[in-house]
Amino acid sequence: MSKRIDVSDLNVYYSDFLAVEDVNITLDAKSVTAFIGPSGCGKSTFLRTLNRMHEVIPGARVEGKVLLDGDNLYADGVDPVTVRSQIGMVFQRPNPFPTMSIRDNVLAGVKLNSRRMPKSDADELVEKSLRGANLWNEVKDRLGKPGSGLSGGQQQRLCIARAIAVSPEVILMDEPCSALDPISTLAIEDLINELKDEYTVVIVTHNMQQAARVSDKTAFFNIAGTGKPGKLIEFAETATIFNNPSQKSTEDYVSGRFG
């Protein structure tokens, strides 16, 4: 499991508005890539194009190519549902399904698609996914309780468990820690470090220390001004971006002298 993603000449639109312009980037398999940049520069928008979640918004569209191990996600006849079952996503705010128990939340990807699964297999999948998300020990005695009763950090890890339960190739995380306290954040960062052994992880973050801690490579996005499209400014090893960036704007941003 885990595949690489190659993006070439990607333009992302909201109706007529060009939100992200001309992105070329390669995300390696079994590694963590972080996207950093100021608010509104298109990092999240770009992330959502990687599993075709962008087009859920009315009027949104994409031009260019995104190759998942050589298969173009935006080729004719590609079903976005197939794409999303291979590229999972964790959102900014934890969003467990309120009508489901913790167990059912983990099994949501299976159950919602009405795939039959023997109870023993389901139990195994629940335990494996929750262990994978470092949540098993905290919830193993109350799997039947509603997922919305957990704390914010636990809910977010539940969402990660839900994402890895469908065994995707890639996991996209859109600011997964921005709504969490430092301890929950640490738990998720540890988890990201473990996840990269099996998955390709892409994470959007506003926290530069977090990018420095968890990622192998970092991409810096920036925007020239309001109404202008966001652009990929620089993409390199995380150490290079933070210690020896080649672009002036990257250096300004990572050193806090932005604007």
Partner: peptide
Amino acid sequence: ELREAAYALGVR
């Protein structure tokens, strides 16, 4: 968010 969460799991 709930709709998006389901879509992101590959649910029709």
